[in-house]
Simulated scan of single mutants.
Amino acid sequence: MKLGYHIGYWSSGPPEGALEAIRAAEELGFDSVWTAEGYGSDALTPLAWWGASTSRVTLGTNIVQMSARTPTATAMAAMTLDHLSGGRFVLGLGASGPQVVEGWYGQPYPRPLARTREYVDIVRKVVAREEPVTHSGRQYQLPLPGGTGLGKPLKSTVHPLRKHIPIYLAAEGPKNVALSAEICDGWLPLFFAPRTDGFYRAALEEGFARRAEPAKDFEVAASVPVIVHDDVEEAANLIKPALALYIGGMGAKDVNFHHDVFARMGYEEVADKVQDLYLGGHKAEATAAIPTRLVEDTALIGPPAKIRDELAAWEESVVTTLLVRGDAATLRTVADVLS
């Protein structure tokens, strides 16, 4: 199983020691480095800036939010970064949720699967550069009908370094996971648990069955917290606040995809309680309501021997890469334990 370093998105500013950690990841033999965006820092600029200090690792976005850019703008950025990195770029895309899409970007959220399908199709056309790009869909139209009437199909002035840049899709629900297998080169799961492997394996197989050609080297790069600590409870307590935020506060009461992941995992009552507490302003109580076993299902925590023992279940799952976080020292510790 490969290791990747996930920088994540920024909070109030750039994460301290990020460049040192990226360099350490490459020195330690990590396969990839990933950036993200929410509604603050973007994913592309840090990847280009810090990625310039690397020479080997794959550089990926986990994720670029589709509503933030038109498909052609995203394709332009992908081709640019692919050239600058010498063919090391992976484009990770995601639909995000209605709060961000409609509240931050001012874009419509309905029909995210259909929008994703069209978006990926346009990006593929731009990168392939086989002909001027046209698209007549329900979500996107190129050239735009109406307007001045002067729009015309265009082909990128830049010749791509690679005519096929890998695209991974961030997905949590079964239909979206299946879509990643059908039209993309990889899947970026969040809150994956090895004991739910069969559920996601079936969703992926459904998508693979719809492909015109068999998938080659399909990757599953899962964000997995790894905390090496003698005390399992203390390690779990470091992760619970973030889980409370995602389960309870990332989305509306009736539209929270992260909540739904844990409900499908068998923690519906826990997820409901955490959400009620969090949305009610009781963040500490929401955090305390998360059982350690839930953390252990989706993370590798505890003494080295425990982590190594539990790693076997991850290696037997559909996951091909573990994306871990932390500073340079943490990455060295994790690499030592997981090697």
Results as ranks from 00 to 15, higher is better:
178 A>Q: 04
211 R>M: 06
147 G>T: 09
76 M>D: 06
313 A>F: 09
269 E>N: 14
87 G>M: 09
27 E>I: 04
174 P>C: 07
79 M>Y: 04
119 Y>L: 06
92 G>T: 01
226 V>W: 02
88 R>K: 11
228 V>M: 11
33 V>W: 00
103 G>Y: 05
90 V>K: 01
188 L>V: 15
270 V>A: 14
245 L>K: 06
336 D>V: 08
302 G>S: 12
290 I>P: 07
253 K>N: 10
78 A>Q: 01
51 G>P: 08
258 H>I: 12
213 E>K: 13
136 S>H: 13
46 P>K: 06
205 E>N: 13
113 L>G: 02
170 A>M: 04
294 L>N: 05
205 E>T: 08
208 F>V: 11
240 K>P: 04
29 G>R: 09
12 S>W: 05
119 Y>I: 03
86 G>I: 05
315 E>G: 12
197 D>T: 09
257 F>A: 08
127 V>G: 02
199 F>Y: 15
55 S>Y: 04
147 G>C: 12
252 A>H: 02
297 D>R: 14
139 Q>G: 09
77 A>V: 08
169 L>Q: 12
291 P>S: 08
312 A>M: 02
57 V>N: 02
55 S>V: 02
93 L>C: 09
105 Y>H: 15
314 W>S: 06
259 H>D: 05
8 G>T: 13
282 H>Q: 14
303 P>F: 08
273 K>D: 00
193 A>P: 07
60 G>L: 01
320 T>C: 03
74 T>Q: 05
243 L>T: 00
182 E>I: 07
272 D>C: 09
98 P>A: 13
206 E>A: 01
27 E>D: 14
80 T>M: 15
98 P>R: 14
246 Y>K: 01
281 G>Q: 09
186 G>H: 01
274 V>L: 06
160 P>Q: 13
322 L>N: 07
95 A>Y: 00
47 L>T: 04
151 G>H: 09
295 V>R: 07
240 K>S: 02
57 V>I: 13
199 F>V: 08
17 G>F: 06
90 V>S: 03
64 V>C: 13
57 V>E: 01
48 A>D: 07
28 L>S: 07
128 A>L: 14
339 S>Y: 06
28 L>F: 06
43 A>R: 03
208 F>G: 09
283 K>C: 10
43 A>C: 15
176 N>E: 06
115 R>K: 15
94 G>W: 01
339 S>F: 02
114 A>F: 09
94 G>Q: 02
136 S>I: 05
276 D>Y: 11
154 L>M: 15
212 A>Y: 07
123 V>L: 13
311 L>M: 05
39 Y>A: 12
81 L>G: 00
56 R>C: 08
331 L>M: 12
169 L>W: 10
323 L>M: 12
190 L>M: 11
235 A>P: 08
189 P>N: 12
18 A>V: 05
248 G>F: 00
86 G>P: 05
247 I>D: 01
111 R>D: 15
32 S>R: 04
160 P>Y: 11
180 S>I: 11
